[in-house]
Simulated scan of single mutants.
Amino acid sequence: MVEGASRITVKFHNDPKEYRARLVGAAPPLDVALLKVDAPREKLVPLVLGDSDRIRVGQKAIAMGNPFGLEFTVTQGIVSAIRENPGAIGDESGLVPRVIQTDAAINPGNSGGPLLNSRGEVIGVNTAIFTPTGQFGAAQFAGVGFALPINLVKQYLPDLKAGKTLTAAEIIRSRPRLGVSLIPLSVYPESLRRQYGLPETGLMVQEVERDSPAQRAGLRPPSRFAYIQLPTGETLQVGVDGDVLLKADGVPLTSIAGLRRVLYAKKPGEAVSLEVWRQGRPFTVRVVPQVLR
């Protein structure tokens, strides 16, 4: 929205004047920027930032923005789902593990606008639409829009206020981590799982970083490997005798995004309880995730 802009202006409702603004901080991988507007104090009436962790499917959702250049447009719908990010924003590294799905009309020009609840609190930042062609961001609304949860944005407000421009690497370093690389067992062919007596679901440890929380907790990487062919035709080397993470804080693990959801909810110094499968033997271990910055 502001990347590469030589001049940024802001307009207020029922006021034809444009006010100059400057970029304070940004997180391009999250499609978020913080602006400071040079406008009279009486114009600056902030919206209340809500709590996106309290969102419930079916509740009212109100989207604001400038679709197709039509200023100050308001559309209404419901929160259709709170789901794993299907690729609407961020990348495969899991910068945005979950998004808010809404049927409130979101079109090109809504990106960056607020998604509100019925109390007028900001619960998300509109970011993308999904079209019948299977594309994100194309110019045809089909009742499936996505918003960045506001609680995720709140995490980075102090950095943005300090004038930082956050890269993907900096965002990842700010997140709690175990220090392991994992592959879901759902990727493994059933014949391979049977051959090595592996569980049907879980996350197989592939590597354990040195001096990481995972190593200190005693998690073990594989010593034997096999090759599998992915649907894309690529060949992937996978471990067959490493530890398998079955649950995190009692939540069954079927995807890496599911583990990230549990980890990202942790406060600094708070441990996560992992149910681990090792060569047919289940056990539980507590690990304190690490934040690199």
Rank of each mutant, 00 (worst) to 15 (best):
K11N: 10
F12H: 10
F12Y: 13
D15M: 01
E18R: 15
R20Q: 04
L23A: 13
P29H: 10
K36V: 02
R41L: 13
E42D: 15
L47C: 01
D51Y: 08
Q59D: 14
G65D: 01
N66F: 00
P67A: 07
P67S: 05
F72I: 00
T73V: 00
N85I: 03
I89L: 06
D91E: 09
S93D: 02
L95G: 07
V99D: 00
V99Y: 09
P108V: 06
R119P: 05
I123A: 10
N126M: 11
I129M: 07
T133C: 00
G134I: 01
G137L: 02
V144T: 08
G145E: 08
F146E: 00
P149V: 01
I150G: 06
K154T: 04
Q155M: 05
K161A: 06
G163S: 07
K164R: 15
K164A: 06
K164D: 05
T165I: 01
T165S: 09
P176Y: 11
G179R: 04
S181G: 06
L182T: 06
V187D: 10
Q195V: 00
M204G: 12
V208P: 02
V208Y: 07
P213E: 04
R216S: 02
A226T: 12
E234D: 15
E234A: 14
T235I: 14
L236A: 06
Q237T: 15
V244L: 05
G250M: 02
T254K: 14
L259N: 08
R260A: 09
Y264Q: 08
V287A: 03
V287Y: 01
L292C: 01
L292Q: 07
